[in-house]
Amino acid sequence: MQSQPPAIEIDDISKRFGSRWAVSRLSFTLPAGRSLLLTGHNGSGKTTLLRMIATATFPTAGKISIFGHETREKRELLRHDVALLSHASYLYEDLTAAQNLTLLARFLGVDDSKKQVAELLERIGLTERADSPVRQFSAGMRKRLSIARLLMKAPKLALFDEPFGELDPAGILQMENLLKELQGKGVTIVLATHLIEQGQSLTQERLHLDQGRKETP
């Protein structure tokens, strides 16, 4: 008897874009509470795989189950528990940092959104720029704001797509601490990165993709 379903169960999935296969016949299981390092070259299918796990898109063939729930069927349920930090920031350029976070808080039904937004802005060090529109932000600042979004959501499964990119050394250190903190809280983490050594120190499992296929690195 299994007491807890695996965090991610990938059953022979393939994903096509036009006539190109981004992910081919991939199977993999990640137990809950473990962390996964996802490696591979550019265009190897890492981002597509993360997007499929995050229910942003769905496999052309095969199935993904998150915490025992199939992604296509139970997408509304899963979206409460899965968060994706991706290349796209999902931010509204014309809204300020605070407005972007408040919007998310309202959609999540957070009670004291004002307080939580203030705390998060403090934490990511953007309090002073809280009322500037995102359009004026640098790539690093946007990344921090995306992190704040992820923290506000408090997911059980957090997906990071190249989180160290666009960050300065201090930011990279903060990101590492954040990952450790989330792991300490029992959050399952998938980390896709080029920085293999950095990633390996933070994770227990590893999956290497080559042209959408699982490879031994």
Binding site: D12, S14, R16, G18, S19, W21, S24, R25, S27, F28, T29, A61, Q204, E205, R206, L207, H208, G212, R213, K214, E215, T216, P217
Partner: peptide, 18 residues
């Protein structure tokens, strides 16, 4: 057709690299 068939199953299945 041609664009729709699944890719061949080449890679070994079920191995987790740690």
């Amino acid at each position: 057709t041609g664009a729709l068939e699944l890719p061949p199953l080449e890679a070994p299945k079920g191995q987790v690299t740690t």
